[in-house]
């Protein structure tokens, strides 16, 4: 296979930026360098129409009413998009950030905890589920603990929810009516069979699945210069690893 002119992370970042088009206000949470870079790229492409709040940043954090303000923004309906991950994610888009195996709270594996997911997932209209690892241990038939539940269409107050799930292999769109994922695109260099082999839940799969759109040269240049510099403030180690040229140039 010939080498692609972009890295795995660059494809994820540019895909995220595309998924955020049209948003007015986007926030990213803890340990989220790729979503953070994707949001900053989307902002750069928005012509001044998007605000981005990167948790842990000083220059790209405009909140000044304490830790609760982000959640209040979501409650008010002002926060258009957010990112959630999970130690486990199942086919109905339930996510688990607490632990697996054993009997809660003495789970065999313990993850940090649910953070803001038990609330933001219900209130933010465009939640992007993001988990780089695409494996059967992560994408499971049923999560062991529900940190936050997928939409149930049961009439309860639920303006928010997932639009889909982005992994190292593909982008699944979430069909809220059917409460199922649909394989929307497979990343260049990967196949539908590979996605099937590594996914533990059932999903809808059209006869022909598109390749995830590759970034063009202009976007890659923007990403490798301005956006890499912007995200480096919050995630210097990530930038040193993914954009070594920028790091070497002393930026």
């Amino acid at each position: 296979m010939t080498a692609l002119p972009f890295s795995r992370q660059e494809l994820l970042i540019t895909t995220i930026a595309r998924l955020l088009q049209g948003c007015r206000l986007v926030a990213t949470g803890a340990s989220s360098p790729i979503p953070g870079a994707g949001a900053l790229l989307a902002r750069a492409q928005s012509g001044g129409h998007m605000r981005v709040n990167v948790l842990g940043s000083v220059r790209n954090d405009f909140l000044c009413d304490g830790g609760v303000e982000l959640f209040d923004l979501a409650g008010q309906g002002r926060l258009d998009a957010f990112f959630l991950g999970g130690g486990q994610i199942d086919g109905e888009a339930n996510i688990n950030l607490v632990g697996a195996g054993g009997v809660y709270p003495q789970t065999d594996v313990r993850w940090p905890g649910s953070f803001g997911s038990g609330y933001l997932y219900y209130l933010v209209p465009r939640v992007i589920l993001f988990r780089e690892e695409h494996s059967r241990r992560v994408l499971v038939p049923k999560v062991d603990f529900i940190s936050s539940a997928g939409p149930k269409n049961d009439g309860t107050y639920r303006p928010g929810g997932p639009i889909g799930l982005l992994t190292n292999l593909c982008w699944f769109a979430f069909d809220r009516d059917k409460r199922r994922f649909r394989l929307e695109s497979v990343h260049p260099g990967h196949s539908v069979e590979e996605v099937r082999d590594h996914t533990g839940f059932d999903f809808d799969c059209p006869a022909s699945v598109a390749a995830t759109a590759a970034p063009d040269a202009d976007i890659l240049t923007l990403l490798r210069t301005r956006i890499a510099r912007e995200i480096a403030e919050t995630y210097p180690r990530f930038v040193a690893q993914v954009f070594p040229d920028l790091a070497a140039a002393g930026d």
């Binding site: 304490g66 830790g67 609760v68 959640f71 409650g75 607490v98 809660y104 649910s114 953070f115 803001g116 997911s117 038990g118 609330y119 933001l120 997932y121 219900y122 209130l123 603990f145 529900i146 940190s147 936050s148 539940a149 149930k152 309860t156 107050y157």
Partner: peptide, 28 residues
Amino acid sequence: TCPAVHAAIQAAGKGLPFMPLRGLLGTD
């Protein structure tokens, strides 16, 4: 979940017995 802690702390700060919060339905 983060806003639940914030909301319950705010309730005490206002001298209220409880605070409602959206979300959380259907979770463990």
